[in-house]
């Protein structure tokens, strides 16, 4: 018996290492996901420390240096129609866009997880009411809901974040509800019930940790969508208000100079594309890596 357990203990440790290792390997082998991860890290780093390294302030006007082209002279990425440094503005806008994306994701995931867990755990009347509510909210076309709300409340970072979160939590709720419902039937949930565990214990200690993988994937994809939504709304003028820069409102200002100064539109457009597709790639990679079924392939 002791020899048997000793062997199993040894075997067990290799097993643990190898399952984690395999997941990690599946992820690191996913080229697009690694590309996404690197780009995101670079973007975050640049937006966090970059503005203090650029010798210009984002609000500093310079009427004698308007429409300077990129890669020529003191302004690395050129200047805009008011002579403000494009690099400084892009990075400051990145701060705002990324922050909004991240915060909206946190709120959406929290709300979605709680609603989904409660609906999946209790089922019956509570579950039905909650999920029908989710379906009802899903019925609204996101963009119009977003624009209506943005027109009604005064735009700002906090309100935009909340509004985006409001349109994004439903899919987390649906994913989590499905997971929790399936997990509830498992024997370890019955065991917790037989122990006399309170509902909170079963929901948050037993079931939820087993549903983390799909939540992480959904979270990543929500960040991508939140950044995109923020750009939409700002582009249409209901989002972040100038002079505060966001990638969306930079794009909006740039459209009238599209022929004369195309970099004004290209640069923020490129940033949005880069950030959104990186988060999407990351989400895809995580989904593939965390899905145990892909073990076979």
């Amino acid at each position: 018996m002791t020899a048997d357990t000793a062997i199993a203990a040894h075997g067990g440790q290799t097993l643990r290492r190898s399952t984690r290792y395999r997941t990690l390997r599946r992820f690191t082998r996913h080229r697009l996901a690694m590309f996404g991860l690197v780009v995101i890290l670079l973007l975050v780093l640049a937006c966090a420390v970059g503005p203090s390294l650029v010798p210009f302030d984002q609000f500093q006007l310079n009427m004698r240096a308007r429409f300077r082209e990129p890669f020529a002279g003191a302004h690395l990425l050129g200047t805009d129609e008011l002579g403000r440094d494009m690099l400084a503005r892009l990075l400051m806008a990145g701060r705002i866009s990324l922050t909004i994306g991240f915060c909206a994701m946190v709120i959406a995931v929290t709300v979605g997880t709680v609603v989904g867990t409660v609906a999946g755990f209790y089922g019956g009347a509570i579950g039905t009411v909650l999920m029908r509510f989710v379906d009802a909210v899903l019925c609204f076309p996101t963009i119009f809901l977003l624009l209506t709300l943005a027109a009604l409340v005064s735009p700002g970072i906090v309100t935009i974040t909340l509004i985006i979160a409001l349109t994004a939590w439903m899919e987390v709720a649906r994913v989590v509800q499905g997971q929790i419902r399936a997990l509830r039937e498992r024997d370890f949930a019955v065991a917790a019930e037989a122990m006399g565990a309170p509902d909170r214990w079963i929901m948050f200690k037993e079931l939820l940790p087993n549903a983390v993988a799909p939540i992480v994937v959904a979270a990543t994809l929500i960040i991508a969508r939140a950044i995109l939504l923020e750009s939409y709304v700002s582009y249409l003028g209901y989002g972040i208000q100038p002079p505060v820069a966001s990638w969306g409102n930079m794009l909006e200002k740039a459209q009238q100079y599209l022929t004369t100064a195309p970099w004004l539109a290209l640069l923020p457009g490129l940033m949005i594309t880069l950030a959104v597709s990186s988060f999407n790639f990351l989400g895809d990679g995580l989904r593939d890596a965390l899905d145990p079924r892909s073990e076979l392939s």
């Binding site: 024997d187 065991a191 917790a192 037989a194 122990m195 006399g196 037993e206 940790p209 087993n210 983390v212």
Partner: peptide, 24 residues
């Protein structure tokens, strides 16, 4: 109301793989 009785009655399961929480 069952909670106080729960500690006096327990269950052993058939499937030793599904009866333990894999994340604990």
């Amino acid at each position: 109301q069952l909670r106080p009785f729960r500690r006096q009655m327990q269950l052993v399961f058939q499937d030793p793989f599904s009866s333990l929480n894999p994340r604990m």
